[in-house]
Each structure stands twice: as C-alpha cells, then as structure tokens.
C-alpha cells in the first residue's frame, strides 16, 4: 500500500477505522505500517545502500495479512483501503499455505 506522506495525518482516522473493520470481521491476521526510509542489502557482497527511494511511486507504506476466501474476496476487502482514496494502490498476494 502506498500513500503520499503529506496526507498521512489527515487520513489516520480512516486507517484506524478500516483496521477496526477488518478486525471485527475476523479478516485481520496481522498488519504493520512502515517507516518510509530503509536499507537494501544486496548480493553475495552484502552491499548496503539506502533505499527504497522515498520518491518512488511504488514504495510499500505498510501491509496487512488478511484471511479471505479467495482472490476475489481479497480484492473486495481491499476496496476499503484508505490509500486508494489518495491515488495510492494495493497489491494483493496470496500467502503460500504452510501445510499441505
């Protein structure tokens, strides 16, 4: 999920209420907002660089793990994400099942 920083504070209540909604419906397994700056450790040489770039459009601002019936259900749930109202986006990835 990505959202422009300047509106972060304004939309905070929206986020809180969406999270509560996810929790009340029993969808929410975990979720974390992320600081915008980070480090990248790359390759055999373990090169450390600053990144990802804050100006990057695709910067991951945070994530939630939800339980949904299937991809369509997950898409439906994602529609409530406040980041979307600020031209942000949500990327949805299934978590691999740990047991067969």
């Amino acid at each position: 999920m990505a959202a422009p920083p300047e509106t972060m504070e304004k939309i905070m209540p929206k986020w809180m209420s969406w999270m509560k909604e996810l929790q009340d419906n029993g969808y929410l397994k975990a979720g974390r907002p992320l600081e915008r700056s980070g480090k990248l450790v790359t390759g055999k040489s373990r090169t450390v660089t600053d990144g990802p770039h804050v100006e990057s459009k695709d910067l991951i601002g945070g994530f939630v793990i939800i339980e949904a019936n299937d991809m369509n259900h997950a898409i439906e749930i994602s529609h409530g994400c406040p980041a979307l109202d600020n031209d942000g986006c949500v990327e949805i990835r299934p978590v691999m099942k740990l047991d067969m």
């Binding site: 974390r32 907002p33 992320l34 600081e35 700056s37 980070g38 480090k39 990248l40 450790v41 790359t42 390759g43 055999k44 373990r46 450390v48 990144g51 990802p52 991951i60 945070g62």
Partner: peptide
C-alpha cells in the same frame, strides 16, 4: 536499531544468489 537489523540481514542465504533484503522499520504509534 537499523544497523543491527542490517547486520542480521547479512546472514540471509538468498543474498548468495544475488537476491536483496529490504530492511524497513515498523512505524511505532
């Protein structure tokens, strides 16, 4: 801290295959 987290990441076996670990601090409320 971030430095410690980077240090831990250096052990990641995926790096030996030229992968990347992105280290991001969780925002505390």
């Amino acid at each position: 801290d971030m430095e410690h987290a980077v240090e831990i990441s250096r052990g990641c076996p995926g790096l030996d295959l030229e992968g990347t670990v992105e280290v991001r601090q969780v925002m505390t409320i």
